[in-house]
């Protein structure tokens, strides 16, 4: 009888010990597998493009057509954020495409600092939604003209480094000091951006491209205004490079079609220009993968 009691107690202790170990182990494992799955399925690193003022979501069609002509190409998703914050989609991201292009444009695409601030907030709305849908945790960005300002404001105000990593940003003809050609006369926007520069991600590499049609700038944005970007980025982000492009197509609105800038984009921003196994996009010179204008 005594013997039986001992065996029973040993069995009970073993069972209890097993449960004490097995329950947290199972919980841990389930959580671990779940997060591993999320990380595994988020190898996507999209290139998110923001057009400048007065431009629609089709602003980059020519650019992406040209990029896709040189390579096997990537798919393109276009989003227009409505003034009420809702999103209008057109185009789609191809299955298995790890580096799709996503254009985020705004229904209200007017110029002006108050409006740019609104657009940054709208961009954040779209970005949050995109992250939820596609679960990427890295991305790269291109901003044309005011698009670069929207990116800067977004990075300073909304970007959360522990959730997502922006590794590279290219701003093209971005007027960091608006239309001001004297860098001593800092606009309110530039002062605000400089004041908040410490929130910029330290791992980011920034390329600022200036177009010069004449000696003053690209005809719309003064070169000094583009160069004012150094007051924001230099000594805060990892690398800040300014590149000046001149010659054909160096006028402000031609910059996204400028062959040299396209070269720079495919060199610095697109990391896998020839990704294998992206269906539906082959080396066709007609810009396959670019969604129909919508």
């Amino acid at each position: 009888m005594k013997k039986h009691w001992r065996s029973l107690i040993i069995i009970l202790i073993t069972l209890a010990a097993t449960l004490i170990v097995l329950i947290p182990a199972t919980t841990w494992m389930t959580a671990n597998v779940k997060s591993a799955r999320v990380i595994h399925n988020s190898r996507m690193e999209p290139v998110i493009l923001i057009p400048g003022s007065s431009a629609t979501q089709d602003r980059f069609n020519t650019l992406i057509n040209d990029l896709n002509k040189q390579t096997t190409g990537h798919s393109l998703l276009k989003i227009t954020v409505q003034t009420n914050g809702s999103l209008k989609y057109s185009g789609r991201i191809a299955r298995n495409d790890n580096e799709p292009y996503i254009v985020v444009a705004f229904e209200n695409n007017k110029d002006g600092y108050p409006n740019i601030k609104k657009q940054a907030a709208w961009f954040n709305t779209a970005f949050t939604q995109l992250r939820k849908t596609y679960r990427f945790n890295r991305f790269r960005g291109i901003g044309h003209s005011n698009g670069g300002l929207i990116y800067t404001l977004f990075l300073e105000k909304y970007y959360q480094a522990d959730e997502v990593t922006m590794s590279r940003l290219m701003t093209i003809g971005t007027p960091y000091n608006l239309a001001e050609s004297n860098s001593d006369n800092r606009t309110q926007m530039l002062s605000d951006m400089i004041a908040a520069r410490k929130s910029l991600p330290t791992g980011l590499t920034v390329y600022s491209i200036a177009g010069t049609e004449n000696l003053d700038g690209d005809g719309t944005v003064p070169i000094e205004s583009v160069e004012a970007g150094k007051y924001i980025f230099q000594n805060q982000v990892k690398h800040y490079t300014q590149i000046t492009v001149s010659g054909d197509d160096a006028a402000h609105s031609d910059l996204p079609q400028n062959q040299q800038i396209i070269q720079l984009i495919s060199q610095y921003i697109v990391s896998t220009p020839n990704q294998q196994g992206v269906p539906g996009i082959t080396r066709t010179p007609n810009g396959n993968g670019v969604g129909q204008p919508g």
């Binding site: 170990v21 097995l22 182990a25 199972t26 494992m29 389930t30 671990n32 597998v33 591993a36």
Partner: peptide, 20 residues
């Protein structure tokens, strides 16, 4: 197939490695 932590008690490896 899921990797289990170092030193997972033998009888639990398969259970955890199949995610339960």
């Amino acid at each position: 197939v899921y990797t289990v932590p170092t030193g997972t008690p033998g009888p639990f490896i398969a259970f955890l490695g199949t995610n339960g």
